[in-house]
């Protein structure tokens, strides 16, 4: 199937696409990923905080019903396969962006798919925190809101950065998938040329670029997480 993929002719065919379409595709993938992650964090962070603080042993216990609904919604959204979710949110996408195709339009389903995931990641970060530190803050007269804003979140920053790194690399993968139904970027190129026109060379290049992007996000995130952690002696 891949016969002649790396032949001179194939390269000749691919060259104009590599030069003309790839720079824009890389840029689209990067900004869709970053924007989607940012929105997913904006929604997911408060929800993750709520999952921990609202727990019956948390700093701001919420009614059990509220917590169950929250849990179920998050689990539901997380269990729908991304491509199906993308189709399901078409109406919402149209409402917000005005269209369901294109790079910007793919941000909506990406955010919907990612924020529950981010909420769970935030939850796990915050649960790592030593409960004695929260108790100490309570003993000093901190209110639940102060504990969240001044203790839980700031003390979890290194772990949150690590988890947001996981989120951004996952979202990058989803954004490539969104190329199948209207999304832009490297995913779209890989599918259009590789799958529909059998120009596998282009597909390989797109995949390699995706791998490189994942590597870059991951190593920047790791370094940032380590650098921000004041528990490490330096």
């Amino acid at each position: 199937m891949f016969d002649g993929t790396f032949s001179f002719e194939a390269l000749q065919d691919a060259m104009p696409i590599l030069l003309n379409e790839f720079p824009l595709a890389v840029w689209e993938t990067v900004y869709v990923t970053i924007l989607s992650t940012a929105f997913a964090i904006i929604i997911g962070l408060p929800l993750g905080v709520l999952l921990v603080a609202g727990d019956k042993n948390g700093v701001l216990p919420l009614p059990r019903g509220v917590m169950s609904v929250l849990g179920v919604v998050i689990n539901l959204l997380r269990s729908v396969p991304f491509l199906i979710l993308m189709i399901l949110v078409f109406p919402l996408t149209r409402l917000i962006v005005g269209t369901t195709v294109g790079t910007v339009a793919s941000i909506v389903p990406l955010v919907i798919a990612a924020f529950p995931f981010v909420a769970r990641l935030v939850e796990s970060s915050l649960r790592e925190l030593d409960p004695n530190i929260i108790e100490a803050a309570q003993s000093m007269g901190a209110s639940p809101f102060q504990i969240i804003m001044k203790v839980m979140i700031p003390e979890s920053v290194p772990s949150l950065i690590s988890n947001f790194t996981i989120a951004i690399t996952t979202i990058l993968g989803y954004s490539a998938m969104s190329g199948i139904i209207g999304g832009g970027g490297l995913g779209k190129i890989a599918i259009n040329y590789g799958y529909y026109r059998y120009q596998y060379l282009i597909m390989f290049v797109a995949v390699i670029l995706l791998i490189i992007l994942v590597q870059i996000f991951q190593s920047v995130g790791d370094r940032w997480a380590i650098h921000s952690d004041k528990r490490l002696k330096r």
Partner: peptide, 13 residues
């Protein structure tokens, strides 16, 4: 106010 066995300082401050 209170002090503890494990000190319970904020590690990121």
């Amino acid at each position: 106010t209170m002090i503890f066995q494990g000190f319970n300082l904020l590690m990121q401050r």
